[in-house]
Amino acid sequence: MKPADKPKKAAPAGAKPRPGKPASGGGAGFKAILFNLAGAAAAGLLIMFLFQHHEPTSPTDTYVNSGYDWLLNTMLENNLKTIEQYPDKTLQERYVLKWGPGEILYIDSVRKLTPENAIVMIPPHTVLSQVGFKSCGDLPWVTYFLYPRQVVYGDSVNSPLYAKADYVMSVNGWGLDKSPTPVTAPQPFMVLPLKK
């Protein structure tokens, strides 16, 4: 049969009364209630089977329902607990809550201490890795958190932004010498203006 010849199939609109059966609009029969109870019990059992929690005895342990167990009893439950515990955290605080108090705290300080149109010089990759900064070595990562500020690395001397930088992020003494005025009380982390 050609597809064009296909009769339009009526869209299923739920269970329809069979011919000869009462379609009164009245309530359910005993049989229907029984089927519903049995069906609901089966659905409940399915849900219990899928989301049954197993305590893994080793990291490689997997069960048939591992993924479903994880999504409800680990991922969702833990997240909902955290949300309940810290409902009023700011966006920046939520990053710290998620990633821990690492680079994001320093980058947030740079954001707070510089205007939106600033060009910020951050230490070269070698310095960043010495102090254990991993993500800051990715220009798009650091730009994401500082945008609309522009970012240039301290060793990108050929970049047109290098000469135009307004601020420097000083880490472990790197960048102190770039400040136009002598730094009287150096700190391990500072944001210094590069123009007087």
Binding site: A13, K16, G39, A40, A43, L71, L76, N79, L80, I83
Partner: peptide, 28 residues
Amino acid sequence: SWLTLVWIVLAGMTAYLAWGITEKCLYW
């Protein structure tokens, strides 16, 4: 006529999961 107890059980669980993941999504 479409409403059955099975539907209510499954829709209830789906709604709970959808609510939970939406909470998570909007929080982080």
